[in-house]
Write a protein that binds this DNA or RNA. Structure first.
Length: 415
RNA sequence: CGGGCCGUAGUAUAUCGGUAGUAUGCAUGCUUUGGGAGCAUGAGGGCCGAGUUCGAUUCUCGGCGGCCCGACCA
């Protein structure tokens, strides 16, 4: 894409109503627009990142055999009353409204109850199981305090997956598979080195632990304790003598870290199925409640976390897999403009996603903007290039500069 | 939901109970052109409401909005 056609602009200064690093950088670079507290729109560059994160997640969900759906945002009050989660005393993040006829309707902050209800139409026998579905959904939550830019919003994108199983063993086997798949997702978005599977309390629905995926990050809301072996991590809420005893570990081997919860998985057993009446006949014709587990990843929070963890003083540093473009092509003078145009076309013909800074600006501004936007590979075309026919390549993350031909660069990017 | 801070051009910031200034961005022109260039000219501003006052952007109250701390947090 030509940058002269990109409608967003970069800003030199941080907006006064944002303190968090993710919001400041994403706003300055033109990835997001704040509509109100905790509510953001995603602009072309931001949407590019969202799409890439979704793509990674979708690929990983596909490995698990999950099918994608989209459930409605408007939700039926009666379904939630069955599990006693309609009242504002029980769930304090509800957005609710009323139809013209006066009956109440909820805006989806979670989809567990509706999907259970929906599956009653599709699951009746053990032969129908297991069922795996996921969706990317805008969740609406009436947070009393939105904060930290896109880390905690009133409207945000979440991937949620649900697994319906005949047996507890099957449910657990899948649960453990998802842990590995999730770790892969966080590796691919560039956070593998700082993301831990963390045991946490199960909340209202599970008696034992649930698992969270926590990314070490100063702006995180949670405190987790990471074991020195680097494998075990515990949420502060269960970091007590009882837990330590159960796990046979020493308190002194843990270090406390601030972390952002980027994913969360729950094993509900048959509890919800019993509440909502979802059952399947086994081979003996007996009706048995279906086992449920659910799996969430906060897509927009994940994007914010990447910015928090990987940016530097000059701007954002996107990992290759989620960057809105692979290459940022900068032309520095009119003398080399036609040469740069050719290079732009060459990238396009090789299907390499390229943002072409064809604006009539000084070099310094282009460099500063490129640093801020954070595309992984920068290709600079200045007067020098005319003679050498070699491209100047700068890596955003390391700052290292190399010279190479367009052919070799394309080979490397494709490789 | 408790507590704190805040609301001034597109953005970011000053000052002041009596013509609201600066930077940046924007527009035009000339010069410049490898790390946010220089000069000139121009357009552009007090969140809303009430009160105090001769006069309010400034002081008081209310509203609306924003950020932070805490509480909360599938």
């Amino acid at each position: 894409m030509r940058q002269t056609e990109l409608f967003t602009k970069t800003r030199r200064e941080a907006p006064k109503d944002e303190i968090s690093k993710n919001a400041i950088l994403l706003t300055r670079a033109g990835f997001i627009h704040k509509e109100m507290a905790g509510v953001y729109s995603f602009l072309p560059l931001g949407l590019g990142v969202i799409k890439n994160i979704k793509k990674i997640i979708a690929e990983e969900m596909e490995k698990l055999g999950s099918q994608e759906i989209i459930m409605s945002t408007l939700q039926n009050k009666e379904i939630w009353e069955k599990t006693d989660r309609w009242s504002d005393e029980k769930v304090d993040v509800w957005f609710k409204s009323t139809f013209k006829n006066g009956s109440e309707v909820g805006f989806g902050w979670s989809h567990e109850e509706p999907i259970m209800e929906m599956m009653k139409s599709h699951i009746s026998s053990y032969q129908d199981l297991p069922v795996k579905v996921h969706q990317f959904q805008n969740k609406l939550r009436n947070e009393v305090r939105a904060k930290s830019g896109i880390m905690r919003c009133r409207e945000f994108i979440m991937k949620d997956m649900y697994y319906f199983a005949l047996t507890e063993e099957d449910n657990l086997t899948f649960y453990n598979m998802v842990i590995e798949v999730y770790l892969n997702v966080f590796r691919r978005v560039g956070l593998g080195h700082v993301t831990f599977v963390t045991s946490a309390s199960g909340g209202v629905f599970t008696d034992e632990f649930s698992h969270e995926f926590q990314t070490i990050c100063e702006s995180g809301e949670d405190n987790i304790y990471v074991h020195k072996d680097g494998k075990l991590a515990l949420n502060e809420e269960i970091f007590n003598d009882k837990t330590l005893e159960k796990l046979k570990v020493e308190k002194s081997d843990f270090e406390m870290k601030k972390a952002a919860e980027v994913g969360n998985i729950f094993n509900f057993g048959t509890k919800k199925s019993e509440q909502l009446g979802l059952s399947a006949s086994n081979s003996n014709g007996e009706k048995k409640p279906v086992f449920l587990s659910s799996y969430g990843i906060g897509v927009t929070r994940l994007m914010g976390t990447v910015v928090e963890v990987l940016s530097d003083e000059k701007g954002i540093v996107w990992p290759k897999e989620i960057a809105p473009f692979q290459v940022h092509l900068l032309v520095l003078s009119d003398k080399v403009r036609s040469f740069a145009d050719e290079i732009y076309q060459t990238f396009i013909s090789h299907r390499i996603e390229v943002l072409y800074d064809d604006r009539d600006l000084r070099a310094g501004e282009k460099f500063a903007d490129a640093d801020l936007i954070g595309i992984p590979t920068r290709v600079v075309v200045g007067d020098k290039a005319l003679k050498s026919k070699k491209l100047e390549i700068k890596d955003r993350a390391t700052g290292k500069t190399r010279e190479m031909t367009i052919e070799n660069l394309i080979k490397e990017l494709k490789g």
